[in-house]
Design a protein around this nucleic acid. Structure first.
Lengths: 218, 218
DNA sequence: TACCTAACTGAAGGATTGTTCAGGTATAGG
DNA sequence: CCTATACCTGAACAATCCTTCAGTTAGGTA
């Protein structure tokens, strides 16, 4: 599983004359089923059969969408990272110059928003992260997150950075850490998530300010 | 594995007339073997047999020291957390008042020092973390880390905090995030680890300062 | 309606794993 | 040397698990 082929989730034999999926089965449905199994039974009991069962299809069908189990897990993580990337890219969408403190808040909010949107899914995903080869994530999707932050930071009206990529990396990692920690102690929907928003804002603003001051330009 | 009994690693039948362990087997040796297997083959291929083999003993012997596989993994994580706790507790050892910026640096250094001490082990441990029930860690050993930071922060000569525990939690989580991220992209002993020290210091100082300013007392 | 074929099924195969336990081994004490 | 016993061994067992594929189902097309 650790050395399997990192194939993209996809129908293996694309139809020439596409028809409706008989049981409404989609990749999304399998994703969802996997997350549910993950939450109910843990990573150790996440089996292809169980996921298929939960999705209302047979194992065979699952293997038509994903070449193997690892590809399924990888796809789930990848989708989450892409959601996160979109959220972060939205920060610098209109490209107007803004104060750094504003940007800091926006970045923190963008990050937290994705995590908070579906707390159960987030919790489940943290379990998968350890099972997947970190490398493949770093080199691939993770770069997009970093680029999004770099582009956002370029819109700061009152600050500039010496090593933007490093700053983006640290900020993302720190946000990830606080988020992971918070969800780790999360029991049920509580006020902990409100704290998360406040703390990440505080953290983001403080760090970015400090990082900018290290090599001021304005 | 997910619901197994969290037993402490220990000789099951303590001898009345202790003899030398025949093959020099200790819990430490098994720990080390597990880390090596983890690095060489990944979490998916970490089997009890393989660990025992690597440690130079038979599976049966391994099961005299650990009741099951999960207990082994848990023990490894626990040991690491205890090292970290000791390191953090050393920050406020002599109990003298110090400037907050000093404390911030010391805390960051204390954290990073443990991670850097044995990079391979750190990398391996991050893989285990996902497989173990997060709850058991939070409620147990993690509390000790947080307490250590709280006690350290109490020694700040020029700042005080509104909600120290929350600050300690956020700081620890952020440090963990940056550390995890750095080790995730770590290929071989490079200058990335130097950056880690700098970035964690910057982050720690900036966040603690901001958190203290939120409710100043001096 | 009849045929084609993409989509789906699920029992079976092959491989691996966690754990046990009956038996072997070496040390301390007499 | 002999016995007791703590310690170690590793083949065997039961339980899963991932993956395959020959056969079935149902939508599209003529």
């Amino acid at each position: 599983m650790e050395n399997a082929n990192p194939t993209v989730p996809q129908r293996l034999k694309p139809r020439k004359t596409p028809i409706q999926a008989r049981s409404g089965v989609t990749v999304e449905a399998i994703h969802e089923a996997a997350i549910q199994v993950l939450l109910a039974d843990g990573l150790a009991r996440l089996t292809t059969t169980r996921v298929a069962e939960r999705a209302g299809v047979s194992v065979g069908t699952l293997y038509q969408y994903f070449p193997n189990k690892e590809a399924l897990l990888f796809a789930i993580l990848q989708r989450h990272f892409e959601e996160m990337a979109e959220s972060l890219e939205r920060v610098s969408l209109h490209g107007r110059k803004r104060p750094l403190s504003d940007l800091a808040d926006s970045l923190a909010d963008a990050y937290v928003a994705v995590k908070i949107a579906r707390p159960e899914a987030t919790t489940a995903l943290y379990r998968v992260a350890g099972a997947i080869d970190q490398f493949r994530l770093s080199t691939g999707v993770y770069k997009r997150l970093q680029d999004a932050v770099v582009r956002a930071l370029a819109n700061a009206s009152d600050a500039s950075f010496n090593d933007v990529e490093r700053v983006a990396f640290t900020l993302l990692s720190a946000l990830a850490g606080v988020s992971r920690g918070t969800f780790g102690k999360l029991v049920s929907g509580s006020e902990v998530l409100d704290r998360l928003r406040d703390e990440t804002r505080l953290l983001s603003r403080a760090y970015l300010k400090a990082a900018a001051d290290a090599r001021p330009s304005v």
